[in-house]
């Protein structure tokens, strides 16, 4: 099933064009990687899909499971099954992590017409996920991302993803700033989530994550356009040669 269909997407931020005609199609069960140099528009693509304000779509369409994604509110996108693991997870001082996670899950359940999960069943489910993802239970007692290390924040994103079971997970530079152990945990989490029901879009600057998570397709984003698409071998080629040769080709 076609999950995500992006056609001719143009996006401007504060009047400045960032994305200049993105075409991308992703089906259930597939993992795509988007690579590219800094400033190429990778994070803009992630944010515009999640619905962040301040990103103006000036042309093009995005369909998510057949629906017009751009017409949906931020939370409707989440309810429909879109999840963005953010590059910079936001700190929420005073908001307990368990309360946050439970509120998020119950919001999804309410949108599906399901009753809220009670505290006991919820904690049981959460503990199961922590064990599966090899995460420290102490993460739960703390305020959301507040004072978390970079690695803890990324792991908390993976925990949210595992809890909310999205149809399409977009991971925006989830691998950046992680030591090798944290990278393993994140990669294992992503691999555990791979399923024929789900699609994934990995946005990354480095090839490193792709050693652990093998993508089906690799796209190179540069200057607001996808300049090259290919199989997993493209990532290796980029690691070897850098982005320069592609940018020359694009110019």
């Amino acid at each position: 099933m076609n999950l995500l269909q992006i056609q001719d997407l143009h996006v401007a931020v504060e009047g400045k064009p960032i994305l200049e005609g993105i075409d991308l199609s992703l089906c259930s069960g597939e993992v795509h990687a988007i690579m590219g140099p800094n400033g190429s528009g990778k994070s803009t693509l992630a944010q515009v899909l999640a619905g962040r304000e301040g990103y103006a779509v000036t042309r093009g369409t995005v369909r998510f499971m057949g629906k017009d994604l751009l017409a949906m509110s931020i939370e409707e996108r989440a309810h429909a099954g879109l999840f963005l693991a953010m590059q910079y997870p936001v700190e929420l001082p005073g908001v307990n992590n368990v309360e946050f996670l439970r509120t998020a899950l119950n919001a999804h359940r309410a949108a599906r017409g399901e009753p809220p999960l009670d505290a006991v069943s919820f904690l049981r489910r959460l503990r199961g996920l922590l064990e599966q993802l090899k995460l420290d239970e102490r993460l739960l007692k703390r305020d959301v991302n507040s004072g978390f290390s970079g690695g803890e924040k990324k792991r908390n994103e993976i925990l949210q993803m595992a809890l909310l079971q999205p149809r399409l997970a977009i991971l925006d530079e989830t691998d950046s700033g992680l030591d090798i152990d944290a990278l393993r945990i994140v990669a294992d989490g992503v691999n555990a989530m791979r399923s024929p029901e789900r699609g994934m879009l990995l946005i990354t600057h480095y090839q490193r994550l792709l050693e652990y998570v093998r993508p089906d397709r690799v796209h190179v984003l540069a200057g607001g356009r996808i300049v090259r698409s290919g199989g997993p071998e493209l990532a290796l080629e980029l690691e070897e040669k850098g982005y320069g040769w592609l940018l020359e080709g694009a110019a």
């Binding site: 619905g51 304000e53 939370e75 997870p89 908001v95 946050f100």
Partner: peptide
């Protein structure tokens, strides 16, 4: 935005942040 991206509506998100 972060809370809404997790499916939490604006009023509930406001409540969580105000309580925080």
């Amino acid at each position: 935005y972060y809370l809404r991206s997790r499916g939490i509506d604006t009023v509930t998100a406001t409540r969580l942040l105000a309580m925080g």
